[in-house]
């Protein structure tokens, strides 16, 4: 199995998980799997047959670029990894807020609760009321 096949399989897994799974935490994990798939793809692009790791040996004074793997995708993917952990942290923060507000992380339950509190808001005519109603009692 080539790295490209692995990248394709992981990307499919991640994209399918993001689209099909109803739980928001699972969607986030699927997004992470998808990001790793993209990183695998770029790292596979950088390799070449007989290429060395782009580090000079001790005592080596001159380097021929053709002997080394392409280090540019490596540096790009360093940035991608850091962006991915930042995205995950922000998303988990938002998920904690959603859990405190609505007591669920399931997309379908969230939609029905949002719709329910929306009706209350029109009935009472107060948006503040709606959020307090939505907070409800989170099932622990």
């Amino acid at each position: 199995m080539t790295p490209y096949a692995l990248a394709a399989a992981l990307f499919t897994l991640g994209l399918g998980g993001m689209v099909l799974l109803p739980n928001l935490v699972r969607k986030l994990l699927a997004m992470n799997v998808m990001q790793v798939a993209v990183i695998v793809f770029f790292i596979a692009l950088a390799t070449k047959d007989g290429g060395r790791v782009p580090i000079l040996e001790p005592g080596e004074t001159e380097a021929i670029a053709a002997d080394f793997m392409n280090p540019l995708p490596h540096t790009l993917m360093l940035t991608a990894i850091v962006v991915s952990v930042a995205t995950t942290g922000l998303a988990l923060g938002l998920l904690i807020r959603i859990w405190r507000q609505y007591g669920s992380l399931d997309e379908r339950i969230l939609l029905s609760r949002l719709r329910g509190s929306g009706d209350d808001a029109t009935r009472h005519g107060a948006g503040d009321d709606a959020t307090r109603h939505g907070a409800g009692e989170p099932p622990r």
Binding site: I55, S84, V85, L92
Partner: peptide, 25 residues
Amino acid sequence: LGAVDVAFTEACVGGALTTILLVAA
């Protein structure tokens, strides 16, 4: 695959930090 810098960043950040964030959440 020869990308040692990416490998240790992924081990620190992806393997450790993301797992800690998930457990904290």
